[in-house]
Write a protein that binds this DNA or RNA. Structure first.
Length: 884
RNA sequence: GGGCGCUUAGUUCAGCGGUAGAACGCUUGCUCGACACGCAAGAGGUCACUGGUUCAAUCCCAGUAGCGCCCACCA
């Protein structure tokens, strides 16, 4: 016997363990079914489960579970990402607490330490995912740094290098002076800061009292200026182009060049050029062949390229010194407040310094071409479609991708250097040695490039590296390309784009056919969740409080097709927990009434209209739910099931079935029991992908322990021929009638003194029974067409009511304020007349009659008739009320 | 500066060229043999604004306003 309420914690662990143990999650490469593949976006090895994970993994799990039931061999390929910078930072922080740095350990020991840490606390998230019910094929779990994936990374790197798609270059990079590594453009975020704009006077060479004014937010960089640019057509500076200014403090003559970069409208129209420390200036410097003077070291301290006084100074310290010295020389023209954006590393670090270094680059523009085409031609489709624009926009303007990082945790770049700097890019050291020997004619000592690859390089290979590439494994042949990739829009560039580029290049085929993009999870007011705002919702706490099913259902209900952000409100989760309880209790009711599954049940052979109706409705619902899953309309799945289970199955079917279950007719009783069990079993199937735990438990209870697990059950057949439209019409009519009756009873709120004989259609005997059980029925006075006020025999203050030939007395004055009622009826009549006028006008409009479809015209005619009839009744009612 | 999105009930949001929907909240009444995590009823909307297209616009188009996001730039 089921308990009175559903207690999630008691069944979640039990069923998860059973599923896992039985191999329900496992894909089967030998299966004859069609494959359905989702590559799990690998969470960071450092990570723990947050609500965003809950959304993305719930969506994936729903898709996997639905398709597993719908007859596919479903593979959900899990794994984790080594997350280069993030992980290295975590371990360095630990070392810091011991008063050490990674340099105290050395590269090898440090790496050992990270591996140790990974083995011990890494993978927390994978364990946490189980609490959500994630049905991934866990034994296939991969790690981006495991041996197979690492060799895939080396092979791709070497191949791309040989094709000229990876190369070394000396360019400005985004340098993180704290982490001491280059980062990609995407890892830089612009933060608004309030600062100053300083205007400096640079003396023109050979002219006393002649200055050119330049402005900067970064005074210290002036020490690295190697030019001043003005617009070629700026009249103020025509005579100065080609001359030099003397750079103050440094006393270096630097040229005044004409360049379109200088905007005459901005500031003085002249701009100082620091080619080694600003991306725009770098381009200007290249165009005019200006010196690239690097004035910072890796810590963003000033180096030996500046006057001795400033050497070794930290950048902000240098700023103060430069400003003080310029002030002393009287060269500061003015100082303004200025708000501008400053680049920061996305790992919460210090301001980024544009720095000139040699790095490895991937030729992203070339790799992007087929990736763009694949989306243009629909080989990969984004859902929602509008994200394709975002994808295109970025891909079409893609910059060279800096793939090297000066870190110790990651895939070390497979490049070795000879004594003269000659580079040998090979998959391993032996091959590098062999190549070097061939090159030099003798054995030489090689030095390996110390850099590692950007984390996203290995993530880009995820769709094929996880299933065996470069080996032609059965998995690779069967599960590539994936069916759908599920992820947030925030990593379209980081990850989706890279997978598209890498997979198309390596595999020659798109990595997935559909990209489903969901929003981010925010709090109930649309705010980003953050610790400082104290609005963080912890999925594990929610699971504990309301159950995994309630959380999953909530996330599904909020996942709208437009893929907007998801605003999560705990009250809503609670509401869906209540829904789980509701279903639970409906099952309890079935159990109490001994509704059992009948193996020979045939929905097309039902006799009672109520049962024919619910069978039809279940079939319709099943078809709709399946369609919604296919179209990624998870909100429709959730709302459809919520509404159907609560308001159709529980409110009407179960309620109307009660008299049948306690009635005399044994055949009807038996049929109703069997139908109820059948309907419940179907609903439990439909709901399973969203609420796996409670449905598994209820299924077990309903079908018995030998029936097999719901998770691996087939999505049942929903044959259109089982829909009985006549029964649907009848019962829906009955439902609307009962609703009206209840409304009247509720409104009058007295023991009703009228008896109503209802001429229900004979098919709706059940309804008549139900209606009799109501204490009575009175239609609201005004709405009853054949209502008559009696005379003589009626007690004073009462009204004689005649409904369908039966007479009764109602103490009307006691329960209805006649004046109020009249006002209400007048208002309603007014509305009615406006409506009639509108409709009549419409129906006289010839263009409407000729152009609108017939059914629309007919609908409008019908509406007019009904409104007129109602209007007539209202008039009569008002008249009679007035007479009282 | 470029791009994308949003504006519908008190709130969060669906929806759609042909009579405005859900959930929650609110009001009223309920110890009705599954369920108070419940039952029943009810109130509540010029679908942001202005034009246009159409027989018909909340829906399509254009513009306006407000809000949000992404990219780039800000000497």
């Amino acid at each position: 016997m089921l308990e009175k309420t559903f207690r999630p914690s008691e069944v979640e662990a039990k069923h998860y363990a059973r599923w896992e143990k039985s191999g329900a999650f496992a894909a089967d490469p030998k299966s004859s079914k069609d494959p359905y593949t989702i590559m799990m976006p690998p969470p960071n090895v450092t990570g723990s489960l947050h609500i965003g994970h809950a959304l993305t993994f719930t969506v994936q799990d729903m898709l996997i579970r639905y398709h597993r039931m719908a007859g596919y061999d479903a593979l959900w390929q899990p794994g984790m990402d080594h997350a280069g910078i993030a992980t290295q930072m975590v371990v360095e922080r630990q070392l810091g607490e011991e008063g050490k740095t990674r340099h105290d350990l050395g590269r090898e020991k440090f790496q050992e330490r990270v591996w140790g840490w990974k083995g011990q606390s890494g993978g927390t998230i994978i364990k946490q995912l189980r609490h959500l019910g994630a049905s991934a094929d866990w034994p296939r779990e991969r790690f981006t740094m495991d041996e197979g994936l690492s060799s895939a990374v080396r092979k791709v790197f070497v191949d791309l290098y040989r094709e000229g798609l990876i190369y070394k270059d000396l360019r400005l990079v985004n340098w993180d002076p704290k982490l001491h590594t280059a980062i990609s453009d995407l890892e830089v975020i612009q933060k608004e800061v309030k600062g100053k704009l300083w205007h400096f006077k640079y003396p023109v060479e050979g002219e006393t009292e002649s200055f050119i004014v330049v402005a900067t937010t970064r005074p210290e960089t002036m020490l690295g200026d190697t030019g001043v640019a003005v617009h070629p057509e700026d009249p103020r500076y025509q005579s100065l182009i080609g001359k030099n200014v003397i750079l103050p403090l440094v006393d270096r003559p630097i040229p005044i060049v004409a360049d379109l970069h200088a905007d005459p409208e901005t500031g003085s129209g002249a701009v100082k050029i620091t080619p080694a420390h600003d991306f725009n200036d770098f381009e200007v410097g290249r165009r005019h062949d200006l010196e690239m003077l690097n004035i910072f070291d890796e810590n963003a301290h000033l180096n030996d390229n500046v006057p001795e006084k400033y050497r070794g100074m930290e950048r902000y310290e240098a700023r103060k010194a430069v400003l003080a010295d310029l002030e002393a020389l009287g060269l500061i023209d003015k100082i303004e407040d200025h708000v501008y954006k400053m680049p920061h590393g996305d790992r919460g670090g210090v301001p980024i310094e544009p720095w000139l270094t040699e790095q490895w680059y991937a030729d992203a523009a070339t790799l992007a071409k087929p990736a763009i085409e694949a989306v243009e031609t629909g080989k990969t489709v984004f859902v929602p479609k509008r994200w394709e624009n975002t994808y295109f926009e970025w891909m079409r303007n893609i910059q060279p991708w800096c793939v090297s990082r000066q870190l110790w945790w990651g895939h070390q770049i497979p490049a070795w250097y000879g004594p003269d700097g000659e580079v040998f890019v090979e998959e391993n050291e032996a091959e590098a040695n062999a190549a070097a020997e061939a090159h030099y004619g003798e054995k030489v000592a090689l030095r390996r490039d110390p850099d590692v690859l950007d984390t996203w390089f290995s993530s880009g290979l995820w769709p094929f590296s996880t299933i065996g590439w470069p080996e032609q494994t059965p998995e690779l042949q069967r599960y590539y390309p994936g069916s759908v990739l599920v992820t947030g829009f925030d990593i379209i560039f980081f990850w989706v784009a890279r997978m598209m580029m890498m997979s198309l290049h390596v595999m020659g085929e798109v990595p997935f056919k559909t990209v489903y993009i969901h929003g981010l999870v925010r709090d109930s007011h649309g705010q980003k969740m953050s610790k400082s705002k104290n609005n963080v919702i912890d999925p594990l706490e929610i699971v504990e409080k309301f159950g995994s099913d309630a959380l999953r259902f909530t996330l599904a209900a909020l996942s709208i097709p437009a893929g907007q952000d998801v605003k999560l409100d705990e009250a809503r989760i609670e509401g869906y927990r209540n829904f789980a309880t509701k279903l639970w209790n409906a099952s309890r009711f079935c159990e109490m009434n001994e509704a059992k599954l009948d193996p020979n049940f045939d929905p097309s052979k039902l006799t009672h209209p109520l049962n024919r109706w619910i069978a039809s409705a279940v079939v319709k619902n099943g078809r709709e739910i399946a369609a919604s899953f296919e179209n990624y309309r998870f909100n429709d799945v959730a709302n459809g099931l919520y509404h159907f289970i609560w308001h159709s199955f529980c409110d009407w079917y179960v309620e109307l079935a009660k008299p049948l279950l306690t009635g005399e007719d044994e055949a009807v009783k038996a049929e109703t029991k069997a139908t109820m069990a059948w309907a419940l079993s179907r609903l439990v199937h439909q709901l399973h992908p969203v609420m796996p735990f409670i449905t598994e438990e209820l299924w077990e209870n309903l079908a018995g322990p030998d029936a097999g697990q719901l998770i691996v059950a087939d999505w049942p057949e929903y044959n259109e021929d089982w829909i009985d439209e006549e029964a649907v019409t009848d019962i829906e009519w009955a439902i609307s009638l009962i609703t009206e009756v209840r409304a009247v009873r509720n409104e009058v709120n007295v023991p009703v003194a009228a008896f109503v004989e209802l001429h229900l259609r004979e098919t709706s005997g059940v309804v008549a029974h139900r209606v009799e059980k109501l204490s009575g029925l009175i239609k609201r006075l005004a709405r009853i067409s054949n209502l008559e006020v009696g005379e003589g025999t009626v007690p004073k203050g009462a009204v004689q009511v005649l409904v369908e030939g039966t007479v009764a007395h109602m103490p009307l004055a006691e329960v209805i304020n006649i004046a109020e009622e009249r006002a209400r009826l007048d208002k309603e009549l007014g509305k009615s007349r406006v409506e009639i006028e509108k409709l009549e006008k419409k129906l006289k409009n010839e263009q409407f009659l000729s152009k609108a479809p017939d059914h629309v015209v007919a609908e409008n005619r019908g509406r007019l008739e009904a409104t007129k009839a109602n209007s007539g009744k209202l008039e009569v009612a008002i008249e009679r009320l007035s007479a009282l």
